[in-house]
Write a protein that binds this DNA or RNA. Structure first.
Lengths: 238, 238
DNA sequence: GGCGGGTATTGATTCAGATCAATTTCTTCG
DNA sequence: CGAAGAAATTGATCTGAATCAATACCCGCC
């Protein structure tokens, strides 16, 4: 956690790795370390561009709200990942909001740095294009799932995904059993799946009674990850 | 419809407008005009990158299919718009499929041209980034709507959107009444809204009986566009 | 410790939309 | 033209998830 980004152990995995020396210098000079408490907003939908962000630690949620105040949690941003770069590059207002779901350490590259940064390094836009393309793929998949897969499957898939990536890789995986933290409130899980909290509760209980997973607070245990994965695929009896 | 793109009346609105003279030359040399009949596939999910496309005329549907063969129509591509550029730029397999919904004239820039094209003109990637960012915004909105808005509202919003953009702008709008073609099969409309065809039928009938719109085949008449728009917003009785 | 406010669970009921099944209407083509 | 097949409509029924309404739980704080 020195003063320069290149020393950050996330650095090589971020888009910033494409920067040349001049770019890295600029980066070190203008980026700002920030700290957010759980629930704190980072930016809101409609805000003018605020810059690009890079998560050092903690979990960030990307959310979208409609006219009636109903919201969905569109995706999560984990340590080592960047976010907010869409507005950063297109210089348009944020179309989604970002919020710290857990306590977070985050670096921010202010919007003022956007033009020089992007112009000074064409490769950077390509990297961010790749990132956006990946996000797009996942969002498209989400549309498809939301429409076609019953909420139970969506939930099981979320568990599988968390089992695979956890906050940073599987937490424990001894004797085939898996244990990890799902660092989200029930409401937030519900809003990722796209159901009401009441339905979420029932679903958690049902899944628990089926023996697919055990829930104690935010701790999750998967007795048989393989079985969970199979169940998460659906019942296509080919 | 000469042999060079710059002469195409869509040209200035496309991302290719960012090309320099050398790029335009290359473009003219390597792009290929294609023709598709209604229902013909242009590329499939999983296909290796096939290039970037530009619609001259007709309507293209971008679709995604899941393991069970269920599909959604994610978005439409109209004349003057480009598509397929994600694979073109990232050089990864297509993550969605494209299909001609009506008879189409389309220009294709083969994948082999991708690298030189992109390297020769950094501004191009920025343009495509903007395009992708816009698609992303719309897809995120779609997730939110799918989860929170009842299908009736989603349908009304689709009508409003078509009334506003039609195939190329409102077709007729005399004495406040509006008339346009919805160039999609009922099944395709259903798969845009995310409901079953049976439900679609019922919904069309219901909306018709409410007097919000009249349907004859693919022709749609909106007696009172303003009323439709208000209804499409939902019943938030503040 | 115990009080108060948010979060989560549980229960009873309702409802939108899916599903299953049967026609009807449109297309296409021999 | 008329038959065959696909697309669309209609009807009857079922079901997953929302809604409404209580209660239980958890946690910071006086």
């Amino acid at each position: 956690m020195g003063t320069n980004c290149a020393a950050c152990h996330h650095f090589r995995k971020t888009e910033w790795a494409a920067l040349d020396d001049a770019g890295r210098d600029r980066m070190d000079r203008v980026r700002r370390k920030c700290h957010f408490l759980p629930g704190e907003p980072i930016y809101h939908e409609g805000d003018e561009p605020t810059g690009a962000y890079c998560v050092s630690s903690g979990l960030v949620g990307i959310r979208k709200v409609d006219a009636e105040g109903e919201s969905v949690l569109l995706r999560l941003v984990r340590p080592g990942e960047t976010f907010g770069f869409r507005s950063f590059i297109t210089d348009e207002a944020h179309s989604v909001s970002a919020e710290a779901l857990t306590e977070c350490r985050i670096c921010r590259l202010p919007q003022a740095a956007a033009q020089p940064m992007v112009e000074g390094c064409p490769g950077l836009v390509c990297k961010f294009f790749d990132h956006l393309a990946r996000d797009m793929r996942e969002t498209e998949t989400k549309v498809l799932e939301t429409v076609k897969a019953p909420s139970r499957l969506r939930f099981l898939r979320l568990l599988v995904a968390f089992g695979a990536t956890g906050l940073d890789g599987p937490d424990v995986d001894d004797g085939n059993e898996q244990h990890f933290e799902l660092p989200l409130s029930r409401q937030d899980i519900a809003s990722m799946i796209g159901v009401r909290p009441e339905s979420m509760s029932r679903m958690i209980r049902a899944v628990q009674e089926e023996g697919l997973a055990r829930f104690r607070g935010r701790q999750v245990e998967i007795p048989d990850p393989e079985r969970l994965e199979i169940e998460s695929l659906g019942e296509s009896t080919y």
